[in-house]
């Protein structure tokens, strides 16, 4: 994952909290940039591989409902004021990606309310909606238009995006020819060049190489000066520590803790019954 501390593991143990960058502060009386209020999300999955008329008719005959409910989030509440970069940690299947998709407005909450103030750019777990048949450049244009930019803005930015992603002539080749790292470079580059007020990043750099991770980290730091909030989901506790100044820990859909990154990580790693250092090293 993105980690400034990768080169120097000792800093991860006792480094002072928070990033060292200029960041915005909330004006007096300003409501939180993102407010998650008692949100629950339930996935309703069917046992059938795909729902069809045929299976619906068969089910009708037997009078059964083949639906299983997954409580991905349960009564989660927290506020994120301007200037915060929030780290989100938790085990696999905890509900982190679900929370991100809800904040991005893709997934409506089953219960509760989410208030978002500002333009969101999200780099979600599944990557951008890229089409493998199209070239990187065409996908960038498409992604920008879907995010609500105008055509001129997109075309102007495509150059910057290509430059930042450093994928050279692959920019004009179909994306099915990309390696997964190149894919993520482009996806990351697109989401940070959308002038976001709020940036959501979910496990988006796992395939990037060391130099790109460093570059990405620097870019996120830079963005925090202009953006209002950043959300970072990562299993790399080191990057959470170095990039975030606030953190939440989710476990099985419940908000366990909302505290400084240090304390959340300490509690989380203790919970996992693994020494903090051992866990961090392993992860890096």
């Amino acid at each position: 994952m993105i980690s400034l501390s990768a080169s120097d593991p000792t800093t991860t143990a006792g480094a002072p909290a928070g990033p060292r960058r200029p960041q915005q502060t909330p004006a007096p009386g300003e409501p939180p940039t993102v407010s998650v209020q008692d949100v629950s999300i339930v996935y309703r999955t069917t046992f059938e591989k795909v729902p069809t008329f045929k299976s619906a008719i068969v089910r009708l005959g037997r009078g059964e409902r083949a639906v299983r409910e997954v409580d991905a989030l349960q009564n989660v509440s927290f506020d994120v004021p301007r200037g915060t970069s929030l780290g989100i940690i938790g085990a696999n299947g905890a509900g982190k990606s679900t929370l991100m998709r809800a904040i991005a407005g893709v997934l409506p909450p089953t219960k509760g309310r989410i208030e978002v103030r500002g333009k969101i750019s999200a780099l979600l777990a599944l990557g951008v909606g890229f089409n493998g048949q199209l070239s990187g450049r065409e996908n960038v244009v498409l992604g920008g238009l879907a995010a609500g930019l105008s055509r001129e803005q997109v075309e102007e930015r495509a150059e910057q995006i290509a430059e930042f992603a450093e994928i050279g002539e692959f920019m004009d080749l179909p994306m099915r020819t990309y390696s997964s790292g190149m894919y993520q470079r482009l996806a990351f580059s697109v989401s940070v060049h959308m002038d976001p007020d709020i940036l959501l990043i979910d496990e988006a750099l796992s395939a990037g190489d060391a130099s790109f991770k460093e570059k990405a980290t620097a870019k996120m730091d830079e963005l925090m000066a202009s953006a209002r909030a950043m959300f970072l989901v990562s299993h790399s506790l080191g990057s959470i520590k170095s990039l975030c100044d606030d953190a939440i820990w989710i476990h099985k859909g419940k908000l366990m803790m909302h505290d400084t990154p240090e304390r959340c990580i300490a509690a989380y790693t203790k919970f996992l019954k693994v020494g903090e250092n051992a866990f961090t090293f392993e992860d890096l």
């Binding site: 407005g105 909450p109 219960k111 309310r113 500002g118 007020d197």
Partner: peptide, 13 residues
């Protein structure tokens, strides 16, 4: 203050 809610998006069930 209308200012704060200018860009407000609300996601509800």
């Amino acid at each position: 203050t209308p200012d704060w809610d200018a860009e407000l998006q609300v996601y509800e069930p």
